[in-house]
Design a protein around this nucleic acid. Structure first.
Lengths: 167, 167
DNA sequence: CACGATTGAGTTGTGCACAATTCAATGGGG
DNA sequence: CCCCATTGAATTGTGCACAACTCAATCGTG
């Protein structure tokens, strides 16, 4: 909401080149950090036979005892069916989940974790510890980072929404 | 929505479950932020006919007047030839760059920006401004974020390197 | 000089992300 | 009640990311 447009007309305005440079470095850093995270998760999850996005999907499913509709998983992970459908099919092929049409609404497909999927959960428990250790951030920094990232995402999403449909 | 687990200031003890939750939210946030960034760039770059990674590659090429070897671009972006080769081929097909074998080292391929590529640079100038605006972060926050991300990436990379080859 | 190791691009195969489309099930308004 | 807009999944097509591999050019050492 608070968008400081230009409080100081002749402020120590970082000139264009400076702004652009900073921007580039942030998108670079974010890109690099996301991929570095992916690499560490790749190593940590190799033994479990999961990819990072598959792991995220399993986390969502493990969170609740009841089967969850594909729609709900997509909203949680901010992914659409084009990404989730094949991913869930691979999880089903691995025997970790089953997908079945909902009885109440035949359009909906609910995903249930199998016994094998629950067993995998046990083996996945030590994973986050490894990641936290690898990140090397203090709790304080982690909180700061998470807060900034969430604010950033919120802003970016709002900006994009305003850009597209709009009313 | 997401109900913060324990807002009690009295029991901030980060037991395992707490740590794991935090970790998950950070990887979630990072993932989400990276994709939100991608979405905003997608909009901003649509008119230029560039994808976000293609834009990053062009930024590297625009930075220096001389043609740059594929190797150097890959080191700058932390991408390997498996990703860069097809990407650069698409940029070449779009007429923005040309790739030619280096005279000194026949193994190396250098990438040169064409006149059309230089013209595109002019049209790309306003893009970063839009991104900075969309991010809605103050300069202060942007610096903090960049610092945390770089430290995070460094730690993750180091951890992964120690994990893998190592003798 | 010769030969084996290394280097730099490229190719292949798998999986993620997203736009656009398809299709059946559902639900609301005339 | 019927038609039609909406919804939820899935499919198709493009592009990125990475591992594993191929192949030619280069380098180093005997």
């Amino acid at each position: 909401m608070t968008a400081p447009p230009s409080p100081l007309p002749d402020a120590p305005l970082p000139d264009d080149a400076e702004l652009l440079r900073l921007d580039h470095q942030i998108c670079f850093s974010l890109h690099a950090a996301a991929r570095a995270f992916g690499g560490v998760y790749r190593d940590a999850l190799k033994d479990l036979g999961l990819t990072y996005p598959q792991y995220l999907a399993m986390l969502v499913l493990w969170e609740e005892p009841d089967p969850q509709p594909v729609k709900a998983i997509g909203e949680r992970l901010r992914l659409d069916s084009g990404t989730l459908s094949p991913l869930l099919k691979r999880l089903e092929a691995a025997g970790l989940v089953v997908r079945e049409r909902s009885a109440e609404d035949e359009r909906s497909v609910v995903v249930r974790v199998t016994d094998a999927g629950e067993e995998l959960r046990e083996r996945a428990l030590p994973v986050p510890r490894r990641i936290v250790a690898a990140s090397g951030l203090s709790l304080q920094d982690a909180f700061t980072l998470r807060g900034l990232l969430e604010r950033l995402t919120e802003n970016l999403d709002a900006s994009q929404a305003g850009q597209a449909g709009e009313r």
